[in-house]
Design a protein around this nucleic acid. Sequence first.
RNA 1: GGAGAGAUGGCUGAGUGGUCGAAAGCGCUCCCCUGCUAAGGGAGUAAGGGUUAAAAGCCCUUCGAGGGUUCGAAUCCCUCUCUCUCCGCCA
Length: 425
Amino acid sequence: MIDPKLLRQATADVAANLARRGFDFDVDAYAALEERRKSLQVETERLRNERNASAKRIGKAKAEGDDVAPLLAAVKELGDRLESNEAVLSKIQAELKDIELGLPNLLHENVPDGQDEADNREERRWGKPKETGFAAKDHVELGTGLGMLDFDAASRISGSRFVVLAGPLARLQRALIQFMLDVHTAEHGYEEAYVPYLVRSQALVGTSNLPKFEADLFKTTDENPYYLIPTAEVPLTNLARETILEADELPRRWVAHTPCFRSEAGSHGQDTRGMIRQHQFEKVELVQVVRPTESADALDELTGHAEEILRRLDLPYRVVALCAGDLGFGSHMTYDIEVWLPGQGRYREISSCSNFTDFQARRMQARWRNPDTGKPELVHTLNGSGVAAGRALIAVMENYQAEDGSVRVPEVLKPYMGGVEVLSA
RNA sequence: GGAGAGAUGGCUGAGUGGUCGAAAGCGCUCCCCUGCUAAGGGAGUAAGGGUUAAAAGCCCUUCGAGGGUUCGAAUCCCUCUCUCUCCGCCA
């Protein structure tokens, strides 16, 4: 959520910033509603004050044994007026809240202009796509050739967009996850967490997946539903929910491996081949909760933590700054890391690192006590994939393939593979 | 799944219709005293919101959540959520 105060006072500036995303904010409708809210709230609070004062007088009169009947009559009419005012006010406040929850985050000034993926700005590249000397296979061909990747079995069990991994390939994914967790906890200062995979709607409102993106989520059917997490960002960021952290507790850094569940309604037709886009995939997620002044640096640092994983795996990648039109709803600034996939002959997203500033913190009332003011203030939250394990598996398969369809195990994963050094049929 | 108890400020915990945003303690901040770290004394210390250019001030809301009774609710009634204890079941 954008600061409601800022929204009121600088409505035009906010609208101009959001327009860079292609977001059309109806300023006049908002301003009219806000105007009504203001006059009605002032009046309602005045009536409440009157009512409270009367109630106090009655209490006092009673204590002194006076007749309270005339006082009671006077306050009756007040109550009716108050009631009708309150009803209208809460309706208007709910409408305003809906508007506020529907507004995306303000953009950082360094976010490039643009409408979609094609306008993202490349920041840097690491590693060079290797010359194989033969026609590189994609992960589907490699995996099915090894007999370790089975989409048919998955579809018989669960339908499309699921996969079954078998044997050493399943283990290779697990090795990737262990490796990433070890690096982030031992070297990058993250605390490992095990978190719920089913969450309540309020947790998703906190991270700004709800109310706007319900269609992307799986949910259970009862009247008080659980949602399956689309990313560990949801439970991890909500660890700071409704708390006031002391200054010396910041920054908080959490890492977790979880499965992620995405309905991805509307994405049909895209990436239908292979395991690029699945309803269920594994990911190691990094979350940071920091002081507001430190979030910009923290984003660079966090992105570097994710990059380090790819470097150690010796996977070529590039980093792009997402343009205004491609940026996620709650993000202030996002770097995507794209890994080289020889089978596709191009870079594909494997991590997305974002600074949410106070956007999520305001929704979940995640605060810290600023020693300068002594007052609780909103923290800034960040998250990034560190990295997506399913896609990392694809990248390893395609980048470490040999002409005969076998796949070498990357050096850093060998300790996790129980002696297996090559995956072969 | 069954039975019972509970949810109050950063924390512990009192409070069963008005003078309660809430005793006391801990913690924290400031001051005083004390010629050593210790100890003692005093004052202050919840959050959210409105009004304001901003602050001060004033006002509103909040004692798990939602609804109700009442002129007035932390306190009475209803529903829900969560926590704890015991039993059952289970990994």
